[in-house]
Design a protein around this nucleic acid. Structure first.
Length: 302
DNA sequence: GGCAGTCAAGTACGC
DNA sequence: GCGTACTTGACTGCC
């Protein structure tokens, strides 16, 4: 069991997701911003290593406009040595990496242009992970997409299009249940037709769960992961008090997290904390997990 | 330097 | 029809 957080670290005084306006685009700007982002990513990984945080979600903004037609820079070659170095660091530290393209990636959209942009974006994500030499356990997680008034057809479109994705995208892609449209049951149905692993979001499942218990949700999602996918990943959060339903908490609820570890003790998985204060909650979670055999097994020597 | 409006991209929902 | 939410700031032009 590894515990991690997404994209941003406020303790390290830099941002690995710096970008700029499309109207300000130039090759120089792209190279300068990407170089700064990569340098910051290394700093964050070093911070994580020092704190035994061995799971991290890399921002999709690492290379601004990488999948946009405006981008003509051969960033793969230009930053090859950086990708080599960062990839080696990740492998040496035995870290797990994931990515989560944003809401514009919709494989089941009825609009051709949206589909094409989505595939370009997924190719960029897969290329980045490939360039770092990471194995297939470095996953790219997406949601199933929109419903467009006809859910069955929307799911069929996802299944059909998944089959035609480039292999290096398919090998890394996983789907995550959301809290409004596609439940765990829907994701499992897509898994049955495609083999795509299902990443369980325990918070979303608590909102849209189809009556499936937390323990059963862990069991059902775990079965969708093959050995080469690495151990399953679970997204964890809780409700922010007083906010709209589905809003992620500002800071981890350690009592709830401790209960979750106890209830789930018969399963092993990596935990991505989708919590606003990021690395602070990750460090709190790790303190709680110290006594958990699943966690201590992988952090020996850190 | 500070501020407020805006930012590549989609969709669903509440008002 | 518009504003908002999603992982949320960060960039930009104007004063």
């Amino acid at each position: 069991m590894k515990i991690g957080y997404p994209c941003i670290n406020r303790t390290v005084k830099c941002c690995s997701a710096r970008t700029f306006r499309l109207s300000s685009y130039s090759e120089e700007r792209l190279i300068e911003t990407t170089a700064a982002n990569l340098m910051c990513l290394e700093k964050i990984l070093e911070f994580n290593r020092a704190k035994s945080i061995l799971f991290f979600r890399i921002t999709s903004d690492l290379i601004p406009f990488a999948s946009h037609p405006v981008c003509r820079v051969d960033w793969e070659m230009h930053f090859k040595s950086d990708f080599d170095r960062i990839g080696k660091m990740i492998r040496t530290y035995d870290m797990r990496i994931s990515m989560h393209p944003d809401q514009f990636v919709l494989l089941n959209s009825p609009k051709r242009e949206v589909l094409e942009n989505s595939i370009s974006e997924l190719k960029y994500h897969a290329k980045l992970l490939d360039l770092m030499g990471l194995d297939k356990s470095a996953k790219i997680q997406i949601h199933v997409g929109g419903v467009y008034g006809k859910k069955k057809e929307a799911m069929e479109r996802f299944i059909d299009r998944y089959k035609y994705l480039p292999e290096n995208v398919r090998e890394r892609l996983v789907i995550e249940n959301d809290e409004r449209l596609y439940s765990l049951v829907d994701c499992l149905s897509i898994h049955n037709s495609t083999g795509i692993p299902v990443l369980l979001d325990v918070f979303h499942h608590s909102i849209l769960g189809d009556g499936i218990t937390q323990l059963d949700s862990l069991k059902l999602s775990q079965r969708t992961w093959l050995p080469e996918d690495g151990i399953p990943v679970v997204d964890y959060s809780t409700q922010q008090g007083g906010a709209r339903k589905g809003k992620h908490t500002e800071s981890i609820d350690l009592e709830h997290f401790s209960d979750f570890l106890r209830v789930s003790s018969s399963y092993d998985f990596d935990i991505m904390l989708e919590i606003k204060d990021k690395e602070l909650s990750a460090q709190s979670a790790i303190r709680v997990a110290q006594t958990d055999e699943r966690f201590s097994r992988v952090t020996k020597g850190c």
